[in-house]
């Protein structure tokens, strides 16, 4: 099962959220979020639609700006300082629900763009890294195609490889499989499970409970902008304590 054998309390925190609050206009979307993520930890976040899951992980790489509280990533406190933000984004990879590959660039160029321009990796070296990552996600033969010529599952695997090209320390996933046809979900989850096994720190918004059971150290349930409950996956699924968690689990387990 998951890396529960390791004593996580002795490992350093790589992400800390302290009393984070965020509003969209008058709407209080995140309320007093406290979260500590240790190095190598895998966290799955679930919760009903509109509960603020995406907003939460998008605050971690500053795609959204929080208004109160502190977010510390790798020892750097997020602020409006552009240099800080760019430094954090180099360390944090993100995979989106809708892939967001660049349609005007080939797969290979999608992968080498950030290493070349952000990390100043020489082009040849960047291409070697890219090809090895494409091998890892099992689509090296697509390197010279354009995103529009790939299936959804292939595109999402490219998106994962693209994020990995920057050699990030942390990976954020925002519902990476929910835009995919059922038969493609597995190929993406397999890549993510492999990644988890290699020790990547991961925060993953998903409703794939099989994935949570297989790799998560902790499952977090969010509702109405709050963290309602969190626990190890076994416990979380077997004995949910909060009523809202029970209701939610009842719904999604019923549907699956």
């Amino acid at each position: 099962m998951a890396a529960t054998a390791r004593d996580l309390s002795k490992v350093e925190s790589v992400i800390q959220l302290k009393d984070v609050n965020k509003w969209f206009g008058q709407f209080h979307v995140l309320t007093d979020i406290n979260l500590d993520v240790k190095e190598g930890e895998k966290i799955v976040i679930c919760g009903p639609s509109g509960s603020g899951k995406s907003t939460l992980i998008r605050c971690i790489n500053r795609l959204e700006e929080h208004q109160r509280g502190d977010i510390i990533v790798h020892g750097v406190t997020l602020s409006n300082d552009v240099k800080n933000i760019e430094a954090i984004r180099r360390e944090v990879g993100m995979v989106f629900q809708s892939f967001n590959l660049f349609p005007h660039l080939t797969i290979l160029d999608n992968l080498t763009l950030a290493p070349i321009w952000v990390k100043k990796t020489p082009k040849k070296e960047a291409e070697e890294i890219a090809m090895s990552l494409l091998n890892r996600v099992r689509i090296p033969e697509q390197a010279l195609k354009y995103p529009g010529q790939l299936s959804g599952g292939q595109q999402q695997r490219v998106a994962i490889a693209r994020a990995l090209c920057m050699r990030p320390k942390i990976m954020l996933f925002d519902e990476p499989t929910s835009a995919l046809d059922p038969e493609m979900v597995k190929e993406v989850l397999d890549v993510m499970i492999e990644l988890a096994r290699e020790g990547m720190t991961m925060i993953c918004v998903t409703h794939e409970m099989g994935f949570a059971r297989a790799v998560a150290d902790r499952v977090i349930f969010m509702d109405r902008g709050e963290i309602v409950e969190q626990n190890e996956p076994e416990e979380f699924f077997a004995n949910p304590r909060n009523e809202r968690t029970k209701l939610f689990l009842g719904q999604i387990l019923h549907n699956h």
Partner: peptide, 22 residues
């Protein structure tokens, strides 16, 4: 789509790179 801007941001491209390349 907004996702193109976000993907470029999330990769750490700066404004000039994002604008010229993406």
């Amino acid at each position: 789509p907004k996702g193109q801007f976000e993907a470029a941001d999330a990769m750490g491209l700066n404004y000039l790179q994002k604008t010229l390349l993406i």
